[in-house]
Design a protein around this nucleic acid. Structure first.
Lengths: 238, 238
DNA sequence: TACCACGAAATGTGATCACAAATAAATAAA
DNA sequence: TTTATTTATTTGTGATCACATTTCGTGGTA
């Protein structure tokens, strides 16, 4: 593995209303989320500043924020890297997701009225559309939007930032997990969740969310499969 | 409530080996944790820099990091404040703690050998000592150390940062919660937890942790009690 | 060939400065 | 006295620079 492998970051137009730091932050966040940066690859402030065509200052702030969200890792030597994934860590992240997200879903349930339910149904339909088009990126985005909308139905909710941190750490795997949706579409977990919501059945909702997450990551059920995927993802990233 | 109420931050000696940013970070973190900064009070970079006798730069970085950990809140106007607590939010934070920490405990259980168990027993004894001395600050610190040691027994654990974020948001309430330990010492939940560990009983361990957390915050069982405490804490902070 | 030492380049940290936006203060109008 | 409006001050953002530490490349030694 080349230590100086080139970093290919998708650049989006910068909105003038947003600060440079925020733009850099979301740009780097997407890069991590899409697996565009190799795990273990050292990220230097000046290099990123050059790539993004900004001064080092906003990059510093964005890196520190991402590190605080566990998306990046600050090593003892003060180097910043994308954390390396292991089979065990992957497993822990999945279990944490299942635990936290079914909790968040159950806590949101009492707040979901007909209007919000309709909104969720609409979001689910959008996922299906992206599914039909085979648009992986949109599937991931819309799937996250569905979950986010569900959890934030609870106006006092405090777990979404924690959940997003887990999503961020799962990063590139999220995309692949969502692509697997069609492979187990025989059991549509989102529909199950929506049914549970209409019945106000908290336990059924938790089960649906848990299954949704678990089945999505079933591809990495064994350490061998996960290892193969990590290797493949690394190869794709180059 | 005075908008320009003075900020009283406990200053500790700066270790030369540590960066200024890290020192500022932990100093501010403690200030938040101890409720030394009033919720809603605007924190300005330059003011803190003056108080801490450093340049604005390390303060900027520390504030951003604390905001990423949900310890501080960046408002739309780019002002940084300590988030205000509400009864509902408090309730959500407690439930999130119970959920996440019992999960973390159960996941750590398989990794706890006799050596680690002995360590936990020793830590528990230290809590009792602080309890006898009535040293509130030490009780909090050692209590957190006990929980942290338990969860980190799992070498692949990923939830501790999330748990610490919740601790940080609960902030000043943690201290009071721990002071309540003696009031329900008839049922020592840590002992219950240690027993469950020796029996390798995951469910019992989860129950013990859940009870430990729940009973600690029982003082804020009703919105009225919580409201009273918030008012009192605000008065004390001045 | 493998290992170590030394010098050069690169990097993170922190300070200072400029500027635009936001807040606070002061003045004018009702 | 209260409310608008203008002016003055403060504040966050971002750029640039200096310095100590780390990393890397080169050459020499076992």
């Amino acid at each position: 593995m080349d230590k100086k492998s080139p970093i290919q970051i998708t650049l989006t137009k910068r909105d003038e209303a947003v600060t440079i730091t925020q733009w850099v932050y979301s740009t780097l966040r997407n890069a991590v989320m899409n697996g565009q940066i190799l795990p273990g690859r050292a990220l230097t402030i000046r290099e990123l500043a050059t790539i993004l065509d900004v001064s080092p200052m906003p990059v510093r702030e964005a890196l520190r924020q991402l590190a605080a969200e566990n998306a990046l890792e600050i090593q003892g030597n003060r180097r910043v890297i994308v954390p390396k994934m292991t089979a065990m860590k992957f497993s822990e992240l999945c279990e944490a997701r299942i635990n936290l997200e079914s909790h968040a879903a159950a806590r949101a349930l009492p707040y979901i009225d007909n209007e919000k339910l309709a909104e969720l149904i609409a979001l689910d339909k959008e996922i299906d559309e992206a599914q039909d088009n085979g648009d992986l990126e949109q599937i991931t985005i819309r799937n996250q939007r569905f979950h986010r909308r569900l959890y934030t139905a609870n106006p006092h909710q405090v777990t979404l930032p924690l959940i997003e941190s887990l999503w961020l750490q799962l990063g590139p795997f999220m995309k692949l997990a969502n692509s697997r949706l069609k492979e187990h579409y025989t059991i549509d977990r989102h529909n199950e969740a929506l049914e549970a919501i209409t019945k106000k059945d908290a336990l059924a909702l938790q089960m649906a969310i848990a299954s949704d997450i678990r089945e999505g990551f079933a591809f990495a059920g064994t350490p061998e499969l996960l290892y193969n995927f990590i290797e493949q993802a690394a190869a794709d990233a180059i």
